[in-house]
Amino acid sequence: MITDPLLLSIKLAAVVSALLFLIGIPLAGWLSITRLRWKFLIEAIVALPIVLPPTVLGYYILVSISPNSSIGSMYLDVFGSALPFSFPGLVVASVLYSLPFAVQPFLAGFESVDKRLSEAAWTLGASRVKTFLTIVIPSSIPGLITGGVLSFAHTLGEFGVVLLVGGNIPGSTQVVSISIYDQVQALEYEQAGQTSLTLLVFSFFVLSLVYATNRKVWTIWPKNS
């Protein structure tokens, strides 16, 4: 069991980023090709977490996953434990909270791929799904990396939603941002300073690494041939 809040945060961010790739790529792919008139509503829903106060979002998530709700009771029946104030609950909340930070760069990436590349693949007999997997995705690596990094970083830095949905249970839901808050409340400024600095250095390191890689990708695969 991980007791270090920093490691727990990294674990949460990694799990959430991975899930966001699984959910965000099909969602953004669908948004990039659909001609549905009500597409803007889906886009608005995806973007909501950007403008909503984390406490509002956290409140609704907490209510909808509580054992009194249908989702919450179903989870309780299947797994034998409740979602709120647990690591899986945190994952659910963080995925929703970071969704726009993955979907929007993915979507921008997919939409920046020259449409004629897809058309060329169609005339060569490739289905829409095959075209998306073999042409669109490989041509939007920079957008995918950006989405991955942003959702990782955003999950690492979240506070309000985590506090409402996960509470402050060491080893299970006490992530690094909450432990810093705790330390400050307990007037342990030196410890809070150390944790903050660790988080700052770590975040900066990850972002630099990814942006450096991203730049390299850009030079290998420019957006338009």
Binding site: R116, L117, A120, W122, T123, G125, S127, I135, S225
Partner: peptide, 17 residues
């Protein structure tokens, strides 16, 4: 387009980069 079996040559080639 997949079922028509035409070959389409694009003005700017549309090669897969």
């Amino acid at each position: 387009p997949q079922q028509r079996g035409t070959g389409f040559f694009f003005q700017d080639y549309a090669l897969f980069p």
